[in-house]
Design a protein around this nucleic acid. Sequence first.
DNA 1: TATTGTTATACTCTATAACTATA
DNA 2: TATAGTTATAGAGTATAACAATA
Lengths: 165, 165
Amino acid sequence: MARDGPDGPDLDADLRLLVGYGIKRANAALTPHIERILGGFGLRRSTYSALSVLAGHPGLRQSDLSEVLAIERPNLVQILDELRHSGLVVRSRDQADRRAWRLRVTPAGAEVLAQARRALMAYDQRLTAGLGKAERKALIAALQRVERLGAEAWEGRDVGEISTT
Amino acid sequence: MARDGPDGPDLDADLRLLVGYGIKRANAALTPHIERILGGFGLRRSTYSALSVLAGHPGLRQSDLSEVLAIERPNLVQILDELRHSGLVVRSRDQADRRAWRLRVTPAGAEVLAQARRALMAYDQRLTAGLGKAERKALIAALQRVERLGAEAWEGRDVGEISTT
DNA sequence: TATTGTTATACTCTATAACTATA
DNA sequence: TATAGTTATAGAGTATAACAATA
């Protein structure tokens, strides 16, 4: 255990056995680069995500978007303010339910999204350099599966047995 | 595209093509559960990580630990204060360099770590339920590779070409 | 009575500048 | 002059309570 790697001893070898640790470290390593890339288009991670979903699903309400992106409604307000003030998103009152807003991406928003998407996809593809298309798809599927399994409430009882399959 | 899944339409299908998005969503889904599990032992994610590294490498200095865990030195101070006040870690002045501290896990710290580790490992194993041992190892390796590739500075030039391999 | 969007607020994580004591 | 650890602080992300307007 704790064997040395090419960049020196991996002192966190024990933590590296955990999928959750690997995900946290990977996220921390990627985040500043993703923010820098999107920042070049006047976007943040959250505004890019909102723009991306709205572009594919015009007429979505804020509460729908909140659920899709797993963002609390109050936190979405600022995100949408930002997109509206930049002229990338507009909203109009729902005719049937006058409490709700219907959101749409403007032509300018679609253009910014397209450009940001190209830059972000190029970076993201680099993350799986050396992997084939099938392997990349498998990684993405595995992550989504981890997300689902991890989110399922668990009674946290002390399970001594660990599957050896 | 944007085909419906078993739990309804996946409105973020476009974002799901990104490894970075999958990592962010997985991390967000796991974090509260991991915090809850570790909270049962009086630990946070950061204090658990520090405890885990120090247990395997007694005598480490704070700056070493900071580098291993990719935590800025100032942020490590509070983490170690917490561990010391809980009696899980002690420190002593380095004899050769009286600016530095040498860190060690106490017997109580080792015991808390062992218990927390069992609970956390049981949860983490659940994240890859259905995967074989080799597949789980491959996922962990892929994450570490993503972390490394993603951290390497990149000039962010607009690369239109995307590998089709 | 419940829901949509909003405001205010608080808490954690993370990052930087500047200080001290030692080297 | 540089380094180890510290303090203070600021920003981003995220979470909850409470409110107005509407259902």
